[in-house]
Design a protein around this nucleic acid. Sequence first.
DNA 1: ATTTATTTGTCATCATATTGTCATTGCTTT
DNA 2: AAAGCAATGACAATATGATGACAAATAAAT
Lengths: 228, 228
Amino acid sequence: MKKDIKVLLVEDDSNLGSITSDYLRAKGFNCTWEINGELGYREFVKNQYDIVILDVMMPIKDGFSTAKDIRGIDKKVPIIFLTAKSMKEDTLKGFEIGADDYITKPFNMEELTARISAILKRVSSDTESHFDDIKIGKLTFNPKMQILSKDDFSVSLTTKESDLLILLYKNKNDILERDHALKAIWGDDNYFNGRSMDVYIAKLRKYLKHDEQIQIINVHGRGFKLLT
Amino acid sequence: MKKDIKVLLVEDDSNLGSITSDYLRAKGFNCTWEINGELGYREFVKNQYDIVILDVMMPIKDGFSTAKDIRGIDKKVPIIFLTAKSMKEDTLKGFEIGADDYITKPFNMEELTARISAILKRVSSDTESHFDDIKIGKLTFNPKMQILSKDDFSVSLTTKESDLLILLYKNKNDILERDHALKAIWGDDNYFNGRSMDVYIAKLRKYLKHDEQIQIINVHGRGFKLLT
DNA sequence: ATTTATTTGTCATCATATTGTCATTGCTTT
DNA sequence: AAAGCAATGACAATATGATGACAAATAAAT
């Protein structure tokens, strides 16, 4: 059936950004272009992306820092770095963070799409599409409809509940750090947002009671872990 | 008797567009030709089409983007893409956005009609013709006459009411996003049009009370869903 | 072991944004 | 002028998210 590959391009040079995103769109990718790391991160959080392309050198927030933030909430999404020259330190640093590939500028468009395709092919096996249903134990969650259901029941979650559940799921059986989650969903990590998040954790726990196998445990001072 | 198949062709090259639409008309199709994605989308919204043929590379709004907008309000209408030969088949094939077929330019006319016929044949089973009556529960809606009726009653809907009902029907049991509906029917997604739409939803709900099975539910912050 | 401080759990309540609905206005067509 | 339609204003109802209050759990200090 139809695939809809969502690509997030973060590039501060408006000329290159415009050309690249146009090209990717013409190639059938669902490409979104943001002009700095901060906006890029926020966009990544708001929507589900299949792959991220980050320019390393950016004024507001550089590519590595952005990648680190993204990795804070998503350990699997493929990231490609664009570096100005072949700087050894750059590439090394990038791979440490978990870069899947890096491309030195200037690059030609065919090369970029080829790399994207190669990476997607490589990781496609263990990657769930962003519009697929999520299976959490005996429960099923449809992120588009924001509906959590089992054979016998069905609840509609609010956006915040849904966002948090998705974030927990992406880090299932692994810790979701408080500050990462807060930055991602509430935009800012502060005391009050923290209290709010605790309330939402409580709400989710209530929903997840429908499968007694599933639980959200707290890791004191760190965050939460969704056990499946 | 031959059916009246409505084909929407969106092609920026006036030469090719003219020739192709002439040919399709000669072959008995009811073909409309628009010269860019924006006009194409507006035309699609205004009328009901059985199939859409989109050039990928267009100046104002490219084919993929147009397809995405069309898919936003109609998940089923068959779409054929016209792509330049330079695009590698495999790139395209992997990342189609709900394309039912694609044809590389230059193509010969016989090939195009053959593809169209093949697709229409393939999907005709679950596709309602644009002039058919729509069955909504116990109710029947005739989109040409804009008349909603049951055995015992009959109302004539206004254009806006009718447009909205058709859009809801096309997305029945699935969410119709506010912004898509507003863009499609009111041409622009803004606060005031949104209020207007809510009024029309209320009006439709009143009409649909004649079958208590049918309801339009709201999905907070997202849109509406017609449950049949 | 006991006390203290910090973090988390949860309920109830509040504020805000979204949606529902009626009445009215203005525009167009006849 | 009358009728029909769409847009808008006004206000009610509802859904959502934020916050306050306090209990419980955990960690740290004594």
